[in-house]
């Protein structure tokens, strides 16, 4: 097993970075580790289907060279499910019909988990009125803007936004 500084930790397991630096994090996940949750929609950063968390921050794994993530902690949709079953947001997606075909869903969910952490830290978005505000309520407009990096060809957006606001929107307007 690789040493932690020389390894990429993926869902808690140390993984040796690929020898060929051309391998993207997405290809490492899907083709070498058989973690097929993250999807390859566009391979150009444009659709968000490949979204995973790196040290808790959402990124598009298709534009990430895997070697660059050595020493970091990557969590995919497979890693979000806890011992007591699905992540609360996964349950909310089921409840609110936050998907149809499901292709974009792992990316949507990882992205929303990252979004919640950003809101918590006070990261502003383009539609945040008061940039100086310490706390930003995850209302519908904020969620829509913040999730715009995740496309859904089935048009399940209403369910997606509902699932997210229900899960994180205790202070929602």
């Amino acid at each position: 097993m690789a040493d932690s500084a020389d390894a990429i930790r993926i869902n808690g397991t140390a993984v040796e970075p690929p020898g060929d630096p051309r391998v993207s994090l997405l290809d490492l996940l899907r083709e070498r580790l058989e973690l097929h949750g993250a999807k390859k929609g566009c391979d150009q950063g444009a659709c968000g289907a490949c979204t995973v968390l790196a040290d808790g921050e959402r990124i598009v794994s298709c534009l990430a060279l895997a070697v660059q993530y050595t020493g970091r902690e990557v969590v995919t949709i497979e890693g979000l499910t806890g011992e007591d079953g699905p992540h609360p947001l996964q349950r909310a997606f089921v409840e609110h019909d936050g998907f149809q075909c499901g292709y974009c869903t792992p990316g949507q969910i990882c992205s929303a988990v990252g979004m919640a952490a950003e809101l918590e830290r006070g990261v502003p978005s383009y539609v945040t009125d008061d940039l100086a505000a310490e706390r930003i309520a995850p209302g519908r407009d904020e969620v829509r803007e913040r999730m715009s990096g995740n496309l859904c060809r089935c048009g399940a957006h209403n369910g997606i936004v509902a699932a997210i606001t229900e899960t994180y929107g205790t202070e929602a307007r």
Binding site: E57, R58, L63, G114, M115, E118, Y126, G149
Partner: peptide
């Protein structure tokens, strides 16, 4: 900055 790209890309 927040008008550019997506949140994922801005994180990278």
């Amino acid at each position: 900055i927040s008008s550019g790209a997506s949140a994922q890309i801005r994180n990278m």
